[in-house]
């Protein structure tokens, strides 16, 4: 990755995304493409859903709702809950790329719409290596690159993942979650480690009770526990 001497942030963002981030999402969406083909979703609906929804848990919820032919309100509730995680991601990512106070609706919504956990974790982990005035272009290029890779993966999966050996197909699904867990371990802040550890226990446990409420309550509770245990509430801004 380029550092403070960076002159072409879009190119640098593209290069940073190529490799593990793009490969991970390519494989993850290949499995989604294969899944949608198996349940009879048309190709254009699959592509449109990836582009419009762009969030793996939400895409899975959308697929599930389509298969079970649940009602419109059930879909709204399921998708809104599956997307709860977008709120803290967007709230913390936008201020890291902002060069002046206040909301720039067009630019901020564009980055928010392109936001995925992969982009978000990269913003948290690598922002300090990208000059502030270049961050937005850098991370937009990064996001578009991983979205393109994901879309390609979805189409490849739709048409061809079944041709892989059966034993290998599931292993591709480990790539993205493992990569994100490792990159989250790269964010060296005590509160992040504690929140991650608490979330790793609380969220899966509570989601066995309720998929939607378990995610929301587990995330809020575990995040707050990590925040308080690390003493973040006693620190002043900038510490």
């Amino acid at each position: 990755m380029n550092t403070p001497g960076m002159t072409r942030p879009s190119w640098a963002g593209l290069k940073a995304a190529l490799g593990m981030p793009a490969t991970g999402l390519f494989c993850a969406l290949a499995s989604f493409g294969a899944l949608t083909e198996a349940v009879g979703m048309e190709l254009w609906v699959m592509i449109a859903s990836v582009l419009l929804i762009w969030s793996m848990p939400t895409l899975m919820a959308f697929n599930e709702m389509m298969v079970t032919m649940s009602g419109v309100w059930a879909m709204v509730i399921a998708i809104a809950f599956a997307n709860v995680r977008n709120i803290p991601m967007v709230v913390t990512a936008i201020p890291m790329v902002r060069t002046r106070p206040g909301i720039r609706w067009g630019a901020d919504i564009t980055l928010a719409q392109l936001m995925s956990p992969t982009t978000w974790v990269h913003i948290l982990a690598t922002s300090d290596r990208v000059p502030l005035e270049m961050r937005r272009r850098y991370f937009v290029a990064f996001s578009i690159t991983v979205l393109t890779a994901a879309l390609l993966g979805a189409v490849v999966g739709y048409f061809g993942v079944q041709s892989l050996p059966k034993a290998l197909q599931p292993t591709l699904l480990l790539l993205t979650p493992l990569y994100l867990v490792l990159i989250m371990l790269s964010v060296r802040r005590l509160s992040s480690y504690l929140a991650f550890a608490a979330g790793a226990v609380a969220v899966p446990a509570l989601m066995t009770w309720s998929m939607e409420w378990g995610l929301a309550i587990g995330g809020l509770g575990a995040g707050t526990v990590g925040f308080l245990l690390a003493g973040e509430h006693k620190k002043k801004a900038g510490e």
Partner: peptide
């Protein structure tokens, strides 16, 4: 502090989802 609280909630949500995706998956994994 409020920024870090949101960040912690994001870490817990995304981390929890990823741990679930690895150890309690609803996918062919």
């Amino acid at each position: 502090p409020i920024f870090h609280w949101f960040s912690c909630v994001g870490q817990a949500l995304v981390g929890g989802l990823m741990v679930r995706a690895i150890f309690f998956p609803s996918t062919p994994l």
